[in-house]
Design a protein around this nucleic acid. Sequence first.
DNA 1: TGATAGTGGAGAGTGTCACTATCTAATTTA
DNA 2: TAAATTAGATAGTGACACTCTCCACTATCA
Lengths: 222, 222
Amino acid sequence: MRIGELSRRTGVPIPTIKYYMREGLVPQGERTGPNQARYGEEHVRRLRLAKALVEVGGLPVASARQALALIFSSGISEFDVLGKAQYALTPPRERAGDAAGDAAGDAAGDEAAAQVDDLIARRGWQVKPGNPARRTLADALATLRRLGQDDYLDLLETYAEAAEHLADTEVRAISRRGDLHAMAEAIVIWTALGDPVIASLRRLAQEARAARLLGGTAEETA
Amino acid sequence: MRIGELSRRTGVPIPTIKYYMREGLVPQGERTGPNQARYGEEHVRRLRLAKALVEVGGLPVASARQALALIFSSGISEFDVLGKAQYALTPPRERAGDAAGDAAGDAAGDEAAAQVDDLIARRGWQVKPGNPARRTLADALATLRRLGQDDYLDLLETYAEAAEHLADTEVRAISRRGDLHAMAEAIVIWTALGDPVIASLRRLAQEARAARLLGGTAEETA
DNA sequence: TGATAGTGGAGAGTGTCACTATCTAATTTA
DNA sequence: TAAATTAGATAGTGACACTCTCCACTATCA
């Protein structure tokens, strides 16, 4: 097929397809002439995936490229798909740890890092020291502490339990796929799209619980 | 205090403080002369909060302004703090539902919306029809469907259970605060920062579970 | 009592990001 | 054969979150 059909079938505008090709999210088409190229089903799949990661998953284009490269590469083993996916999907953390404010060499940051290590150890989790989620979590906890919300940090235990339960179900479901390629694809998709799904469900459940507890009514909101 | 100290105590650069004042995230200082103003502890708190919401929570500045306005306003009732916070904290959803691709008037989108309604009903949740999380969730589910991941949609039940459990604990913890003002603040903070916390924990737990199931080792990754 | 550093406020400038538009020459397609 | 598409390259756009520059002033230290 040519680019027009590719655009129609995926809902991605032609200029955007061209842009994604330049950026390497989608490979070039098979050239058939000086100004003609042909595209196949793989282009459709890959483009749909790119669109989903960027639009729904909110990934930067560069991260989406990495994730797509991972899925469509041949030399992956099941031992590192997940790790590489997590690396690719963690939005490039800007410099952190600086600008803590309030003089004092940032006690909250150190405490938070220790707290993360402690949590991981206590749960018996085996996590690579380089997993970017460690940093993200420590940053968030340090911020919570600086905002004086440390009296709620026991919620963390509940969060960790829930995460463990989720991860257990997810890993189990995905490992049932025999095909390594399909596993890699599912990991990327569910890691990226799972975040908004969980966030939405949390908000919905919050509203429901709050209504039940505070007696709020299900009326419209400004 | 003057702006220099405000900057030092919060870790926010002076030009950024000025920008935040222009954007209304932080109120103006109390003028004491043609080119002098004084700032107080409220400025410090508010600026820290602004920084947290933007840097860690990843909110757009406009959303952070709304959230801060909510916290520091006087006329809120406990019946709508949460709803308003959710409205303020949901990143402005761009147009959705269009550009589905593949001809066919987007069956995935309709099915997903129905699926969300069904889930909410099945769980017995009381959720306002206008809650923005409905849309976000439906979009994500529709995308999952279009990517052919609908055979995993039973994971949704696990997600919903986890969300319900989390929300229950959160709402319970927050409602223990008698002060409505403190409640509003906690809601905003935990709604915004809870997302990255949960996402990180999920990733850590995933790696741990995968290691256990696949026998992966905790070595370094590229 | 200067010299130096630090303000407040307004407007313009910067860098990044994700597209989007335009152009040319060369095909297809009707 | 005329109109519509196409590939590819380059340039432009709009949103966003700052960041810089000025200037007429204070504030503070030697």
